[in-house]
Nucleic acid binder design. Structure first.
Lengths: 128, 128
DNA sequence: CTAGTATATGAATATATGTTCATATATTCA
DNA sequence: TGAATATATGAACATATATTCATATACTAG
């Protein structure tokens, strides 16, 4: 069956069948994308990296990343919605921390990827 | 020194010092965010997952993810700019594949994270 | 209760993003 | 060479996003 699914000639080889099996569902794709999207902002990356060594209150985070309390609070809300950070109250302050180990691994995996790019750019053929 | 850096009272405890050390540079934050951002879209996630089992030409990808050739090409361009996929020409066709193992690990790490959310939502206290 | 501190949030605005459409480029075949 | 196929890309448009500002909420101290 070489039907048109999308306005382009469809090849429908074994490859396509296999790929369709590996393809994640719309729902999973949406969830993965939401998680990655929340990581896709320099400010939030800085917040997360600031939390690497332990919890911080919002006011401290503001200072560390040099951003207004409001901006930080909005971003923390976004991170929390994706369960990347959790919070606990201590009196007037609210302390934020990384929610689980996946976040650290995501960051370090991504760092490795970026570092590889780096070495490609600089030396041409490192990191085989 | 309890100075104002951001309009909020700065605490400047040990925590802040430590956090500032862990804090990634603007440059690194920007690069990490760019990589995550390109992963932060359902269409691109689907493309990547489709490439899990091996290379595909653009036309096949279009079919698998049910999107126009143009849209797919734009997205492949974005993925390529962040070195998440590479391409090779074979006659008229151009075959795309995942660039390195980091991408797979990023996806699977994120899947684990999402799955954890899932179990929280559904059973309440699983996956300790 | 009131004043003060810490955090959250809605509205507004400027900017970024994803898809479509039209078209350009590159390759193959006759 | 010219027609056909595969892919890439610029412009445009609708939508999403990050920050700011003003203000609301939650807690503490008195």
């Amino acid at each position: 069956m070489s039907e048109d699914l999308c306005g382009v000639n469809v090849v429908h080889s074994d490859r396509v069948i296999r790929a369709s099996t590996a393809l994640v569902s719309n729902e999973i794709a949406r969830r993965l994308a939401e998680t990655f999207k929340v990581l896709g902002d320099p400010t939030r990356i800085k917040i997360i990296s600031a939390l690497y060594e332990g919890e911080l209150c919002v006011c401290d985070i503001s200072a560390v990343v040099s951003l207004s309390q409001s901006a930080v609070s909005h971003q923390l809300g976004a991170l929390r919605r994706e369960r990347l950070v959790r919070r606990r109250r201590d009196g007037q302050k609210i302390f934020y921390s990384l929610d689980d180990e996946h976040i650290k691994r995501l960051l370090s995996e991504c760092l490795d990827h970026v570092a590889e790019e780096e070495s490609l750019v600089e030396s041409g053929t490192a990191a085989g």
